Amino acid sequence: MRQTELPIFSSPQVVRGTRIEGRVLGLYRTLADGFETTAVETLELGFGGIAGDRHGGMTRRSGGREPWYERDTEMRNERQLSLLAPDELAAVAAELGIAEIRPEWIGGNLLVDGIPQLSFLPPRTLLFFENGVTLKIDGHNNPCRYAGRAIADQAGGGTDVELGFVKAAKHRRGLVAWVEKPGVIAANERFEARVPEQWIYPG
């Protein structure tokens, strides 16, 4: 029997993990059925995220982001929380020619400071909050026209802003995360981001 030859891969460059200190500038949640969030002083988080929140729950329904499933297929909810950074929001607003983009306009849950290029934190990054909560980053949040329309409704600019947001916010739309260890996050609370080892798979 002929032995199957295994492919030979070059060894990838491995970048060591690191730790970065950050701080919570603002907390937000949905209080109704709408997309926008409202500022709150604390977020009480369970394994399903924010109880009663639009994006809460252990599972969610698939949509346009998951073309490999039939729409509305029940799946694991890895998008329980939306994290945003003020410098990225300001950069997107400047590119769109508007004064500001507020986190609540685009459904943000946490506005955080101290993490350079927040949207580029890799999957599996863990955020350890000083009061005990741990969040796990699933990945970056792709910008969509729905969020662009919400910004245009608040800041003006019409279709130019609605459509322009998708391009302007690419890799600056923040992150989505899920709750690994529940508890309560408070405004101004500090946290540590533990970034794992990273590499590009050579196959």
Rank of each mutant, 00 (worst) to 15 (best):
Y69F: 15
A94P: 05
I50G: 03
I101S: 01
T73K: 10
A187G: 02
R145Q: 08
G156V: 11
L84Q: 06
E36R: 15
N77G: 03
A186F: 15
W199M: 03
S10M: 04
V24Q: 04
G108N: 04
G164W: 14
M58R: 09
R71A: 11
P182G: 01
E197H: 13
V92N: 04
A152M: 12
N141T: 09
S62E: 03
T38E: 12
T4N: 02
V112T: 07
N142D: 07
S82Y: 14
D153M: 09
S10Y: 04
S119W: 13
A90W: 15
L135M: 13
A99P: 12
P202F: 00
R79P: 01
M58E: 07
I200H: 03
L127S: 02
A51L: 12
A177Y: 11
K136T: 05
G157K: 07
T4A: 00
V161N: 05
D53S: 05
R71V: 10
P67D: 00
T18V: 08
E95T: 08
A177T: 01
H140S: 09
R102K: 12
L6D: 00
A152S: 13
G57A: 04
G183H: 13
R61H: 06
I98G: 02
E88R: 05
V112Q: 09
F47Y: 15
W199S: 00
E78W: 14
T159I: 09
L118W: 13
P67W: 12
G52P: 11
T134K: 14
K181D: 06
I20F: 07
A152V: 11
R29K: 14
G157W: 14
G52F: 14
I151W: 14
F47Q: 09
P202D: 00
G107F: 12
G158V: 08
G48P: 14
G63Q: 02
A85H: 15
N131F: 13
V24W: 12
P116Q: 03
E5K: 06
L89C: 06
L45P: 13
G17P: 10
T37G: 02
L83I: 11
S82R: 10
K181P: 07
G48L: 13
C144R: 10
S119R: 11
G64W: 10
I137V: 13
W178F: 14
E74F: 06
T59N: 00
V24C: 04
R172T: 08
K170T: 07
R65Y: 05
Q80N: 05
N109R: 08
E104M: 04
